[in-house]
């Protein structure tokens, strides 16, 4: 009897730190955040209940909110999703046993992923600089002229997207290589006998069989991309810059951080957090639908 009760006590004892930390730093902040979002609060003094006013304000009246959502979505497509179109071919090539030095390539491609975003953003700031920037030097030597990458409002988003792509292509390549290794080789042999060329093989065999991995990798990209803050923060000169010219790099996560650290409006910041979270949920659901539909189609054929 004593043994048996101990068997229950031990696991509960082992889980106690988790329970305590989950309740205090997991669950409580979520509930507290919902509460704050219904109040006007500077972080000190009294909280003034305003109901849904914060939400209504951002959805209907605020001059930045929809802009930040638009920029976040733009960067999601051209920063976080574009990388998969490069990562999949890279993975297919690096999965080819006839290619030499695959480990060297994998190491080099993965390097950006283990490096902190600030170091990366700082070096790219130099590369994208207008007068003395490395990229402009190359472009000018090629006779293509120079561009104000981090000043022109139309060029800020592509510059940020480039850095995001640069950091995560290698990571996705590695994920896709792992996915490719799970595809049985006899499928390709059968297709070769049927006379398919390598492009046809990849479109008809690789991509459909890779769909679950694509879903997984893209989901990670979406969740990360919707929280994009570090790169735009550095590349558009911090809170003072507010995303640079015409707020071209002012992402939703940036806006939340700005509300917290610059404006000190915790109620409003929390309201944007929940609105952004809602967007993440919706996009993830849509993405799931698309993948399920694609998979269903493949299944029927």
């Amino acid at each position: 009897m004593r043994m048996k009760s101990l068997r229950i006590i031990y696991p509960l004892f082992f889980l106690t730190p988790f329970f305590i930390l989950f309740l205090s730093f997991g669950l409580f902040p979520v509930l507290f955040s919902i509460l704050i979002s219904f109040h006007q609060w500077k972080g000190m003094g009294d909280m003034k209940f305003v109901g849904l006013l914060n939400y209504a304000y951002f959805l209907l009246k605020d001059q930045y909110f929809w802009k930040t959502i638009k920029i976040t979505l733009w960067l999601l497509v051209f920063g976080s999703l574009t990388q998969h179109f490069i990562a999949i071919p890279c993975a297919i090539i690096l999965n080819n046993r006839l290619i030499r030095g695959r480990d060297v390539f994998k190491t080099a491609y993965f390097l950006p992923y283990i490096t902190n975003t600030i170091s990366i953003a700082l070096i790219f700031n130099y590369i994208f600089g207008n007068n003395y920037g490395f990229l402009n030097f190359i472009l000018e030597s090629l006779g293509l002229g120079r561009y104000n990458w981090l000043i022109n409002k139309n060029l800020i988003p592509p510059a940020i997207a480039t850095v995001v792509n640069w950091r995560y292509i290698g990571w996705n390549t590695i994920i896709y290589i792992a996915g490719l290794q799970a595809i049985p080789e006899d499928l390709y042999e059968a297709a070769t006998i049927d006379g398919a060329n390598s492009l046809q093989k990849h479109i008809n065999i690789t991509i459909p069989l890779l769909l679950p991995i694509i879903f997984f990798a893209v989901t990670l990209s979406v969740i990360g991309g919707m929280q994009l803050f570090d790169e735009p923060f550095i590349m558009t000169e911090g809170y003072g810059g507010m995303g640079g010219t015409d707020n071209a790099g002012f992402t939703a996560a940036f806006y939340i951080m700005w509300q917290l650290q610059r404006a000190g409006r915790l109620g409003r910041g929390s309201a944007i957090s929940w609105l952004l979270f809602l967007f993440v949920l919706i996009i993830t659901l849509i993405h799931r639908r698309i993948i399920l539909q694609l998979q269903g189609k493949e299944g029927n054929e």
């Binding site: 205090s24 730093f25 704050i36 917290l260 957090s273 979270f277």
Partner: peptide
């Protein structure tokens, strides 16, 4: 998404 209440805590 809970960075604000966490900071306050």
């Amino acid at each position: 998404f809970t960075i604000i209440p966490l900071f306050k805590m």
